[in-house]
């Protein structure tokens, strides 16, 4: 009964209704095209020869598929003056992202756990102060961080970038875990405390295993953020230690020689592939991260 009364508003019956449904799907379909066309253009351009790009049109599919542009983007495209392709920079991004995601997630989990399940005076204030760090425009810390990395001997290195991403990722990871632990009942943890389990004992044996959903959301969020980062990469690394986003931008904006759009597009797909794959495989968790990023309690 209740269901039907709602049906009444959202789906009235009759010819008018079917027309509206057709219109609805038409609009939704058009927007699908709007979001998909750049991806399709990117893929089809990357599979064309430069000759075909000059003669054909933006939207035409490749007449003869060639993977030359991919090969070149991967191992021969010029990033500035070096022409080794994107491969070494993809590796840089992997070396930077994996530890930064792992460390910031682990520390965030511990922090969120301590702040919610072992409440002490000032815990809320500490959280509020830390949370602010997630929202500052990073331009405001670029200059001192550049000097700091210099002092630490980490200027222009991948460990330096790992450090920066861990420090500024902490606010977000703490936020995710705090929100998750707020929803976990204190009962089990109280019981464990009564049984004499220690802070770390409870954390590793009880809390971590049950926070798998929060871990997945956080890891995906951090992975996407850090892999896609450009600002820290361009400000704190030079040449050989560039992450892939910086290298991609250099490939595209290398002004010498003929503009090779097919290589640019292949390079863009290579840089995008890891985060796209994660999105396709674990989209639901990605969306949860996005809405948690909206600071919903």
């Amino acid at each position: 009964m209740r269901q039907r009364s709602i049906d009444g508003i959202v789906r009235p019956k009759g010819v008018h209704h079917s027309l509206m449904r057709i219109l609805l799907y038409a609009v939704l379909g058009l927007f699908c095209l709007y979001y998909l066309i750049p991806l399709i253009v990117m893929i089809s351009t990357s599979l064309k020869s430069l000759e075909e790009i000059r003669q054909g049109s933006l939207l035409s599919l490749p007449r003869s598929v060639t993977f030359d542009a991919w090969a070149k983007a991967w191992s021969a495209a010029c990033v500035g003056v070096r022409c080794n392709g994107l491969a070494p920079y993809v590796w840089n991004s992997v070396l930077m992202t994996a530890p930064a995601v792992f460390i910031s997630t682990l520390l965030g989990a511990m922090n969120g756990y301590a702040l919610t399940k072992w409440r002490f005076r000032g815990a809320d204030t500490i959280f509020a102060l830390m949370l602010f760090g997630a929202f500052i425009p990073f331009q405001v810390i670029l200059l001192p961080m550049a000097r700091m990395l210099g002092l630490m001997g980490l200027a222009g290195t991948i460990p330096g970038l790992i450090f920066v991403h861990t420090v500024y990722g902490l606010a977000f990871t703490t936020l995710f875990f705090r929100n998750f632990f707020m929803g976990v009942s204190d009962g089990i943890i109280q019981a464990a405390k009564v049984d004499g389990a220690s802070f770390f004992g409870i954390f590793f044996r009880l809390v971590l295993p049950m926070s798998l959903p929060a871990i997945v959301v956080t890891v995906i969020w951090q992975f996407t953020q850090i892999w896609n980062d450009f600002l820290f990469g361009v400000a704190f690394t030079i040449g050989d230690s560039n992450p892939v986003t910086v290298a991609l931008n250099n490939v595209v904006n290398t002004s010498t020689g003929v503009k090779e759009y097919n290589v640019d597009m292949a390079a863009a797909i290579i840089a995008a592939l890891p985060t796209l794959a994660v999105y396709v495989i674990a989209g639901a968790y990605f969306v949860r991260g996005l809405s948690a990023g909206a600071v919903k309690g």
Partner: peptide, 8 residues
């Protein structure tokens, strides 16, 4: 899905 892409 575009949200999963880098702005670059």
């Amino acid at each position: 899905y575009p949200m999963a892409l880098s702005f670059i």
